[in-house]
């Protein structure tokens, strides 16, 4: 047995390891939010463009539901403008108001709506659309999706390099839909917050509490952000000037800080 041959393979192996370490990861499309505070905490430095992301409202109220819708619309709009392709929005009960979605950046010639009779139809449409592979993003609204369904969606998304946003509606008041297990890359909960009072009589830019409940290879956190603009971009609220902040927003900021810590 030739013992002198032994060290050489290990040297080759370490050289290979170095090569593997030095070569960049497989190119994945990642959509950063453009907000350092958010992108730094996300494991991929943004939303993975080949994965399943789940979102839900913080409560069953219509306000949180609308905020969640706009959050999804903003992300879909940014995927659509980056990839120059269409978005499929599949739902069971169709009560979306397209002019409102357009103000979150999702232009009507970019969205294809699908209306299924049951959750099963919506999930099947979403999977077909993912496997098709030429869409920029798929948004699916469901009430229930079990582990099998989410795993199928995740596999289809990673195969075709198309992101899917699974919007889980509240089934009953006071029970978070995020308690069920899922194969999603990230899980978000969106809630409405009081907007900052502008110096004139009127409404300021809406604010949301964005809570990342779970992510693969990363921590959960809570952040207060300003709502989508006409291109679907979120923003970090400006530091309050010399005015006193409203009590609710102070509480929320404190909570955000403690969660982040």
């Amino acid at each position: 047995m030739n013992t002198s041959a032994l060290p050489r393979p290990s040297a080759d192996l370490s050289a290979l390891r170095e090569q593997v370490a030095s070569c960049p990861r497989a190119p994945r499309t990642v959509l950063p939010f453009g907000i350092a505070a958010l992108d730094d905490i996300l494991a991929d430095g943004g939303l993975n463009g080949a994965g399943l992301h789940e979102i839900a409202g913080q409560s069953a109220t219509l306000n949180d539901d609308a905020a969640t819708t706009l959050f999804a619309a903003g992300i879909a709009a940014r995927f659509a403008s980056e990839r120059g392709a269409d978005v499929l929005w599949a739902a069971t009960t169709f009560d979306l108001y397209a002019p409102g979605l357009e103000q979150a950046g999702l232009a009507p010639d970019r969205v294809l709506y699908g209306e299924g009779r049951k959750d099963r139809d919506v999930l099947a449409m979403a999977e077909d659309a993912l496997r098709y592979g030429t869409l920029a993003c798929v948004v699916a609204e469901v009430k229930a999706a079990d582990m099998t369904a989410t795993r199928r969606l995740q596999l289809a998304a990673s195969d075709s390099d198309t992101p899917i946003l699974l919007y889980r509606r509240h089934r009953s008041r006071g029970r978070c839909p995020m308690t069920a297990p899922s194969a999603a890359m990230t899980r978000w909960r969106i809630g409405c917050l009081a907007s900052e009072r502008p110096p004139w009589a009127g409404l300021g830019r809406p604010r949301w509490q964005i809570e990342l409940v779970r992510q693969r290879n990363g921590k959960f956190f809570t952040l207060e952000l300003e709502a989508c603009d006409a291109q679907g971009r979120l923003a970090l609220p400006a530091a309050p000037g010399n005015r006193t902040a409203s009590p609710r927003s102070t509480v929320a900021t404190e909570r955000a800080v403690t969660h982040a810590a």
Partner: peptide
């Protein structure tokens, strides 16, 4: 081909 709307503020979901 779908056409857009004027930029008056509109909600994301409309009551039936």
């Amino acid at each position: 081909l779908a056409k857009g709307w004027p930029q008056w503020k509109r909600p994301a979901r409309l009551l039936r």
